[in-house]
Design a protein around this nucleic acid. Structure first.
Length: 559
RNA sequence: GCGCCUAUAGCUCAGCGGAUAGAGCACCGGCCUCCGGAGCCGGGAGCGCAGGUUCGAUUCCUGCUAGGCGCACCA
């Protein structure tokens, strides 16, 4: 447990004991308290930790909250905690001020833990499967896929940081009618390469990239020319899609995103898992036949309408395969499945949750995060994308244009359910206006200070030996408070599935550091103070690096 | 028509039911004999509307208005 959580715990226990004592003495007509809410107040006048306990108990006990607060403070035994004083404020908050020397323990812990500061172990780790991107292998990935990649990867890092056992997975839709259409489009392109006249099918894929794939495959497999069209089509269906998947994997790697598992839809079909799950649902009484098709009674679990699983032509729908896929996820032992989908899939949530329940799992075992749209801006104007005119900006183009760090940071600045305006100009600016540079600059600046210390042969002080009470200015205290808040921010971001909190945290910490830097010198101060500030700066460096690591953004030593 | 998301400063967005609602951009004005000026300091302006729950609502609930997206025996 981190040092701030320890203080939190001790104060909470002391408060509970005080409530019990008041109740025992008949001063308060309330039952035992289950949970004490302690938060870090915004304003420094309100101390380091504050509780609303008296306000909550006030209505229960029928007493004015301030009166309750007085009773509690009177009975409060804070001998174990590093609390300097507790005071009652406002409508009945109890504010706790920590002793100045306590910050020394915080700094010592940060330096000792290094990259692990901010991580924790949840009480009962869950096996979590996180599925994201899962872009169709029939075309290049778009910017929403890129956003999903950034959010999913960051969320995986966050979940791992709080001790969950998380696996990242990409679902490849390499079966069904779109696979056929893609193969036929490749065949058409192939014939064009042979000099024949061939039209791309009306429901096919007209993009230039299909021609590139055809070229690549032809170069590597000259024997294709001699095959029958049927043989070639079968070859394209597999090799063509595999080639696209390889492109996707490369683009994602360039973005710093890797997956533990690439799951093939066609494996489900080939192993008979799709019919299998339909049969399972049938046995469970969740299926009926209408108009020659098999329908899943998803309305039994709150969906708007029932859904077709097997079409009247005998072909399973995408949903049927996806249900089989989710069945497989749970069979692999995952306690919890988190899917990140694009905004066009929101209507899908109800039916998938229905399916999960029909398979005997509870609704909470499937979490769905819907990402909202991304608007690219250039010169203040929305970039109008058209594949036809070649103005398409996909994931690869975006990463190439603005760089991996900026792209990731920008995607992680906004909450997932919020529509995102992505300013391409700003992302490339190397000024303080660009938040990613602003944060990275803070890290580089600290590295520079530490380099100078080394050049001047100033020995890095042992954190345990520094006098943290010397860090008494507002700038220093704000920094310390921010450092102490980091583990809580990580936990909160992970629990709420909101990576953007870390991006905001990083900006705030960087801002506090820059402010500190212009007002306080480190090197050249009197020895004790220099030692304390060097330690503070090291701690900031560690936490900035840890926050950036969670975001998947580099923490440069020089820029 | 139904569903999902959104509505906070001129713009882009934060905000864990709490105390005086915060950043950045833009605009105006300051700060480099000194650790990286890719920086810092100061200035004005805001919770779409109406109810409800609560000791307390920007936060939760309902209705309305506006914008975005989606509503297949496609994937």
């Amino acid at each position: 447990m981190d040092v701030i959580a320890k203080q939190r715990d001790m104060i909470a226990e002391a408060l509970k004991a005080a409530v019990d004592r008041c109740a025992a003495e008949g001063l308060l007509q309330v039952g035992p308290v289950q949970e004490v809410h302690l938060e870090a107040p915004r304003s420094k006048e309100h101390g380091h930790l504050a509780t609303n306990l008296a306000l909550v108990l006030g209505s229960q006990a029928g007493l004015p909250p301030r009166k309750v607060a007085e009773l509690l403070v009177d009975k409060l035994d804070l001998a174990k905690a590093a609390v300097e004083r507790a005071e009652i404020a406002g409508p009945g908050f109890i504010n706790f001020h920590l002793r100045q020397d306590w910050w020394g323990r915080l700094l010592a812990e940060i330096v000792a833990l290094g990259p692990r500061y901010g991580c924790k172990r949840v009480d009962s780790p869950k096996k979590i499967q996180l599925e994201f991107v899962s872009a169709n292998p029939t075309g290049p990935m778009n910017v929403v896929n890129a956003r999903a990649a950034a959010v999913g990867d960051c969320l995986a890092r966050l979940l791992a940081a709080v001790g969950e056992d998380v696996s990242k997975e990409f679902y490849v839709n390499d079966a069904g009618s779109q696979a056929d259409q893609f193969a036929r489009s490749l065949e058409a392109r192939f014939r064009q390469l042979l000099g024949e006249k061939a039209e791309i099918p009306a429901d096919g894929y007209p993009g230039e990239y299909v021609l590139e794939v055809a070229k690549e495959l032809f170069d590597e497999h000259p024997e294709l020319a001699a095959m029958s069209p049927e043989e070639r089509l079968e070859f394209f269906r597999r090799q063509g899609l595999d080639r696209m998947v390889e492109w996707q994997r490369r683009d994602l790697e360039a973005f710093g995103v890797t997956f533990d598992v690439w799951f093939r839809e066609r494996d489900l079909h080939e192993a008979g898992k799709v019919e299998g799950v339909v049969r399972e649902l049938q046995q469970g009484g969740h299926i009926y036949e209408k108009d020659g098709a098999l329908w899943f009674r998803s309305t039994a679990y709150g969906d708007d309408k029932d859904r077709v699983l097997v079409r009247s032509d005998g072909q399973p729908t995408y949903l049927a395969a996806d249900i089989a896929y989710h069945r497989n996820k749970y069979e692999r032992g995952f306690d919890r499945v988190i899917d990140i989908w694009g905004p066009d899939h929101h209507g899908y949530i109800a039916r998938m949750k229905a399916a999960v329940q029909a398979l005997g799992r509870s609704e909470e075992d499937l979490e769905v995060i819907i990402l909202q749209l991304v608007n690219l801006l250039r010169g203040g104007q929305q970039v109008r994308m058209s594949k036809r005119t070649g103005t398409f900006i996909g994931m690869a183009e975006l990463v190439e244009e603005v760089g991996r760090d900026a792209a990731r940071f920008f995607f992680l600045m906004r909450s997932p359910e919020s529509h995102l305006d992505f300013d391409l100009d700003l992302a490339q600016e190397q000024t303080a206006d660009n938040p990613v540079y602003y944060v990275q600059y803070a890290h580089a600046r600290i590295c520079s200070i530490l380099r100078q210390a080394e050049e001047k042969s100033i020995e890095l002080p042992k954190p345990e030996d520094v006098d943290a009470a010397l860090l008494a200015s507002d700038h220093e205290e704000e920094l310390l408070k921010c450092l102490a808040a980091f583990p809580g921010e990580v936990e909160n971001a992970a629990l709420r599935r909101e990576p953007h909190r870390i991006a905001h945290y990083a900006q705030e910490l960087a801002s506090l550091f820059h402010s500190f830097y212009t007002h306080c010198r480190v090197i050249g101060e009197e020895e004790e103070l220099q030692a304390a500030r060097l330690t503070l700066v090291r701690a900031v460096q560690i936490v900035l690096a840890n926050a950036l690591e969670l975001l998947g953004v580099s923490a440069p030593q020089i820029m």
